[in-house]
């Protein structure tokens, strides 16, 4: 399965999907114009990955500084997807945020609350 990388833009995060390493990483801001359209390739890649080549452990690193409300909805779908595969795959989910970014911290806490069965860890970023 091929890796998928989308470069960071002014409104969208860097997306790195590495099937060989078993890493899913999102880094940056998320203000796409058409959120679901934008994330569709990622969601499809993930579904395919877990269906076929998933590693023993998949590491998911989310470092989202700012995001709009439809991105927030997208993240629910994202965690829903993980929620569905969590019994068959070992997941290592990290919600990474800057110490100063209260919003990102709170968003991470909210997701942990909403998806209590998912092993989401809050990671404070080192300066």
């Amino acid at each position: 399965m091929e890796n998928l990388t989308l470069d960071e833009t002014k409104y969208t995060p860097l997306i790195e999907l590495d099937a060989a390493k078993g890493v899913i990483a999102l880094t940056g801001k998320s203000y796409p114009e058409n959120t679901f359209e934008f994330y569709k390739p990622m969601m499809e890649w993930m579904a395919e990955y877990f269906r076929t080549v998933a590693k023993d452990v998949t590491v998911i690193n989310l470092e989202i500084i700012y995001f709009n409300s439809s991105s927030s909805k997208l993240f629910f779908d994202f965690f829903d997807l993980l929620d569905e595969v969590k019994d068959d795959h070992k997941l290592d989910i990290n919600w990474i945020y800057d110490e100063e970014n209260e919003n990102a911290e709170e968003a991470g806490e909210d997701f942990i609350e909403d998806f209590e069965d998912l092993p989401i860890k809050l990671i404070v970023k080192e300066e």
């Binding site: 409300s69 209260e102 919003n103 709170e106 909403d114």
Partner: peptide, 13 residues
Amino acid sequence: KIMERSDKRQQRE
């Protein structure tokens, strides 16, 4: 939930 949280977040931002 999303709307509520987003509003709060956006206000802070």
